[in-house]
Design a protein around this nucleic acid. Structure first.
Length: 456
RNA sequence: GGUGGAGUGGCUGAGCGGCCCAAAGCAGCAGCCUGCAAAGCUGUAAAACCACGGGUUCAAAUCCCGUCUCCACCUCCA
């Protein structure tokens, strides 16, 4: 299989460093405030990558997504809310996890920055020993990475130091592009937000967290480092520089997912055009949201609009409907995935193409249903279920989950309507149907029976 | 100033030298099915002349050159 390596800027054949095993590290959220759509896109994109490597290739995949739980913004937001920063971090993280889980994009390994302070100090010490980092000469505990000492700096984003805009020199920084590895504790900050280090009390810089956590979770060399396109610079560039300067192989490949836009513009906190997760879930169930998030290639930008989400709801509904109908006449059998699907996934995770194949299979299956060809139905069903599994689409999301009383009520209404139909009292039948519709229920008259499901 | 990416039907969105008189989904129209619907099937319209102008090639949406427009990154951001 091949995918686009965003460091090499080329499509490459993927060969795991260790046969049969794949290590992936994806930059997770800074738990400062509630998740927005961009976080979801990244999570779903890399979840699909991991699923495909597992299901499609049988690799043993370790997918790590970190949690940055100490950061300037967490401290500021906590202070504004009048609560302990650690409490805020825990709360926000719980919110993230709930959303990730509902989308089927939860992760088994989620190291926290605050659990790896020791490892970060270790990497920093190593960098100082090797002459790639220095403590600020202004008497603070600040430690900076010395970009001038690392000629490869800029290799990830193909930039030259002299062309880059830099920060103002200050705080003991020697050069504009040197970045903080360790940040000195400042007066007024909570005591709990600083740790002892050889350079004095302080906390880690953002980039060093990931270098230390990849090392702890995946070792000195691992297969894929992923994250949103907006993290390429400076975050990933700096991570790479640190880890390489410290003598580690680091990531063999890099993958970056495209951003979510609104009317063509990047969705971000700073622009204030964020669409909340709640808003999304009002328009579609989690499976439909996932479908939508996957509906554009992971490297393209994905433009948000209520309409595009509504289309995802309909498109997914088509798949769900097929599986529901097919399941009534056939068992899910273990079936091969269509070649076209496999090829699509193998060529840079072309999910949009894969979805096209999935829909083609659904249409074939629907035709088989109409023709009463049970073998063909079973084949299509098995195939669709497997493909949906690869993409992590939950096809049961509008199954009849309801209390016994509700079910009884619904079935009573359906019986009432069917009696009216039998009596040819269609006005009455339509009234009952309207009642059901108002309850959020859609019904389908099939040969000899009427089935119901939740609308949407 | 530097580094990348993108412009394809009404909408979303694939394709990236010949299988493209361009996938799939959504939306539309007609027929079948239905008491009517829903779901589904079948068929189908529109100038999709693939941003624009040149070029290469037997062959270009796909390659090259130029132009325009848009986006991202170079400050925190998935």
């Amino acid at each position: 299989m091949k995918f686009f390596d965003s460091k090499q800027q080329a499509v490459v054949d993927f060969v795991p460093l260790k046969p049969g095993k794949v290590g992936i590290y994806v930059c997770g959220p800074t738990v400062q405030s509630a998740p927005h759509v961009g976080h979801l896109r990244s999570a779903v994109a890399f979840d699909i990558v991991a699923r495909w490597l597992r299901i499609g290739h049988g690799y043993e995949v370790k997918l790590v997504r970190n949690v940055t739980d100490i950061d300037d913004k967490i401290l500021v937001n906590a202070q504004n809310l009048g609560k302990d920063w650690r409490e805020l971090a825990v709360e926000v993280e719980a919110g993230f996890n709930q959303v990730y889980d509902s989308l089927g994009a939860g992760v088994a390994h989620s190291p926290h920055a605050t659990e790896h302070i020791g490892g970060m100090i270790g990497v920093i010490e190593r960098l100082i020993e090797r002459g790639h980092a220095y403590q600020a000469e202004n008497g603070t505990a600040n430690v900076f990475f010395d970009t001038a000492s690392h000629p490869a700096y800029g290799e990830l984003t193909n930039q030259k130091l002299e062309n880059m805009e830099g920060e103002a020199i200050g705080g003991g920084r020697r050069a504009a592009h040197d970045f903080a590895l360790w940040k000195s504790a400042k007066p007024g900050e909570p005591e709990t937000a600083s740790w002892d280090s050889p350079w004095g009390k302080g906390r880690p810089g953002w980039h060093i967290e990931c270098s230390a956590m990849t090392l702890a979770e995946l070792g000195e060399a691992f297969d894929i480092h992923g994250g949103g396109l907006d993290l390429r610079f400076p975050h990933h560039e700096n991570e790479l520089a640190q880890s390489r300067a410290a003598g580690f192989e680091f990531a063999n490949h890099w993958m970056h997912n495209g951003l979510v836009t609104v009317s063509g513009q990047k969705m971000s906190k700073s622009l204030g055009n964020g669409v909340s997760v709640e808003e999304l879930f009002e328009l579609g169930n989690p499976a439909a949201v996932r479908y939508w998030l996957a509906s554009a290639h992971y490297r393209s930008s994905l433009d948000y609009s209520p309409t595009s989400l509504a289309e995802a709801v309909s498109a997914l509904g088509r798949i769900v409907n097929f599986v529901r109908r097919a399941s009534e006449v056939a068992e899910v059998s273990v079936t091969e995935m269509p070649h076209e699907f496999v090829e699509a996934m193998d060529s840079d995770f072309s999910v949009p193409v894969a979805l096209g194949v999935l829909h083609d299979t659904v249409r074939v299956g629907n035709s088989a249903l109409d023709a009463g060809d049970k073998d063909a139905v079973a084949a299509a069903l098995g195939s669709v279920v497997r493909m949906a599994d690869v993409l992590g689409l939950d096809l049961t999301s509008n199954e009849k989950v309801a209390t016994a009383e509700t079910i009884e009520l619904i079935e009573g209404l359906i019986a009432k309507r069917n009696q009216a139909r039998a009596d040819k009292d269609y006005a009455q039948a339509d009234l009952v149907r309207a009642e059901l519709t108002a309850m959020g229920i859609t019904i389908e008259d099939q040969a000899g029976k009427t089935v119901w499901m939740w609308s949407n």
